[in-house]
Design a protein around this nucleic acid. Sequence first.
DNA 1: CAGTATCCAGCTAGATACTG
DNA 2: CAGTATCTAGCTGGATACTG
Lengths: 147, 147
Amino acid sequence: MATTSAAQRRAQAKAEYDAFLAGCPSRELLDRVSDKWVTLVLSALGGGGSARPGADCAGEPRSLRYSELSRLIAGVSQKMLTQTLRSLERDGLVTRRVTPTVPVTVSYELTDLGLSLLAMMRGLKAWAETHMDDVFANRASYDNRAG
Amino acid sequence: MATTSAAQRRAQAKAEYDAFLAGCPSRELLDRVSDKWVTLVLSALGGGGSARPGADCAGEPRSLRYSELSRLIAGVSQKMLTQTLRSLERDGLVTRRVTPTVPVTVSYELTDLGLSLLAMMRGLKAWAETHMDDVFANRASYDNRAG
DNA sequence: CAGTATCCAGCTAGATACTG
DNA sequence: CAGTATCTAGCTGGATACTG
C-alpha cells in the first residue's frame, strides 16, 4: 500500500495539508486522532499495556482480542471501545480479524499506518505519566496565586 | 526547574502512574492534552504556523500575542482559545506575560515543560498532514466494501 | 486589545438491555 | 464472546453581547 515513491508523495502531502486551516481535512483527522480512547487503544495494541511497574519501555506490537482490550483499558465502555475500533479500522490504522469459532473470536492488530501513529501516541502517553507530578505542582502554585 | 536527579524522578513517576488505569490522574492529563486546540496552540507557539508550503519542518519556538494566536489558528473561538490558554498556563505549559501598554498587550510563550510536550504535538500534527491521503484512501475502500 | 459572561444547540459518552 | 440498539444526562463549544 502506497510504498511507491513514498518520499515524493509525503512531501507533496505536507505542502497540501495544513491543520492550521479550519477547513483542512487534516484538522478533522488531527481531532479524531487526538482522542483519549484512540491513544489508549493504540498504546495497548502497541504493547504498552503489559509493562510491569518499573519497566522502562513498552513491549512490541501484538494482536489483542476485544475482551482483552476491554480489560486492559480500564473504564472504557463497550460503546466507546467499539466506536473507536471501528473508526480506527475505517481509517486503516487497525485490522479486524474474525475467527469463526463458537463463540466467534475477534482480534485486532495495528497496520503499518497504525504503527507509524503509535510512535506519537506512545510518546504522548509516556509524557502524561512522566510529567504528572510537574503538572500537579504547577497547578498547585497557580491556584495558590489566584484561585 | 527539576533538573536535579531528573532521571531518578522520571523513572519513579513512570512506575507510579499508568494511564491504562481508569482512576489514574495521568488518564485525565492525557485526555486534557489529547485536545485539538491544545495541539494547535502548542504547535503555533512552537513555530509551526509560519512554515511556508514545502518547508520541511517547523520553525523555532516564539512568543505570540493573543490576537496572533487567534489569527493563526483559523476557526478557533475566543472562548476556546482563552479556555485552552488558561488551562495550559495553569498546568505550567505556557507563560502569560502582560505588558501594561494602552491597550494592554498580552503574549504567550512555551515553558520548558511545554517544549517537552511540543515534540509530541508536532509529531502528531505532522502525522495528520502527512498521512491524510492514506487515510482518505482507506476510508474509501472501507466504505466501498461495507457502507 | 484581550478578554469575560451568558445562553443554548448539539454532540458525547455512560448506562442499560438485548442478540447471533 | 463480541457486539448492536436505545435513551438520556451533561458536557462542549459556538454565537453573541459586553468591558477594562
